[in-house]
């Protein structure tokens, strides 16, 4: 078993060098402006390297999906995009993450302001259970000191409508966020992330704990949201990645094996490893 893994690794390191070339050509052909970009991004937990030297563009008004087997570093990569690793004791990040050309890891940049610009939705729905639905949605606004009731109401309605939840909860905005069903809670988490009007939206397996109906609602939602945002979504569900994304990055053992337009990658993957994963030969 161990020797098998080692063999895989050797193959992969071989592949990833070509891969950077693929990467750059794609970036230059992109019809949409690049909103975010990573350059030689590395993330280490202690001495273990989880994300290795990844350069990847995130296009505006497009959905970028990150796929790959468990433990391949996609979530770690995603969390590096809004500096969530600052909070993990032994994680260290090197390389650059550019938002509109500015490196967010520049020591002068305050991570708090970065997280206000780059919203995040997590795998598990995370409403604040003691807060009302209304207060959950506007929690981010209250943090920046907005107290104007009319404005908060307006933003709350807009965010809930965007998250396709408004009609279901409009009569009980004051009941606690924890009283909603799982799917509703996840849409509430999305509404909360949208309320602060981020520039980029990161989603970490947003449907993995939901039933198929709620999942499809959230997929529709992603389609709607990409008109206004750059979206990066991590998913284990290959069909989902195919349905919602315009670009796909395939991760394996911490490296980016292939990045390109989803359609092209799904019909004609450039690398054998990608093809094997997409056809279910491993992973």
């Amino acid at each position: 078993m161990e020797t098998m893994l080692k063999n895989k690794k050797i193959q992969v390191t071989g592949l990833s060098k070509e891969n950077e070339v693929v990467n750059i050509t794609n970036r230059e052909n992109g019809a949409y402006p690049v909103r975010m970009e990573t350059r030689n991004l590395n993330v280490k937990y202690g001495k273990v390297s989880a994300v290795k030297n990844i350069s990847l563009p995130v296009y505006n008004e497009r959905v970028t999906a990150l796929i790959g087997p468990s433990g391949c570093g996609k979530t770690t990569f995603l969390r590096a995009l809004n500096r969530m690793h600052d909070l993990t004791r032994n994680a260290s990040v090197t390389g650059e993450v550019l938002l509109d050309g500015n490196n967010i890891y520049n020591p002068k940049v305050n991570p708090v302001t970065i997280r206000r610009k780059i919203g995040m939705v997590f795998q598990k729905p995370t409403p604040f259970p003691t807060m009302s639905i209304f207060n959950n949605v506007v929690a981010g606004l209250k943090l920046v000191g907005i107290r104007n009731k009319a404005l908060l109401n307006e933003v709350c309605e807009k965010a809930l409508t965007q998250a396709a939840l408004f009609d279901e909860v409009k009569d009980r905005l004051n009941s606690p966020g924890g009283s909603l069903s799982g799917g509703q809670q996840q849409r509430l988490s999305i509404a909360r992330a949208l309320a602060i009007e981020p520039e980029v939206l990161l989603m970490d397996e947003p449907t993995s704990s939901l039933d198929p109906q709620s999942s499809s609602k959230i997929e529709d939602l992603i389609h709607e949201l990409k008109k206004n945002y750059a979206i990066v979504i991590v998913t284990h569900n290959l069909q989902q990645a195919g349905r919602v994304s315009d670009y796909t990055g395939f991760f394996f053992l911490g490296e980016l094996i292939e990045f390109g337009e989803t359609e092209k990658m799904y019909t004609n993957p450039a690398h054998k490893r990608t093809e094997e994963y997409l056809t279910g030969k491993f992973g």
């Binding site: 302001t113 919203g119 995040m120 598990k124 995370t126 943090l143």
Partner: peptide, 12 residues
């Protein structure tokens, strides 16, 4: 998750 949700909203 609760903490991270707050961090992700830009909380100090």
């Amino acid at each position: 998750e609760q903490r991270e949700a707050a961090w992700a909203l830009g909380a100090t």
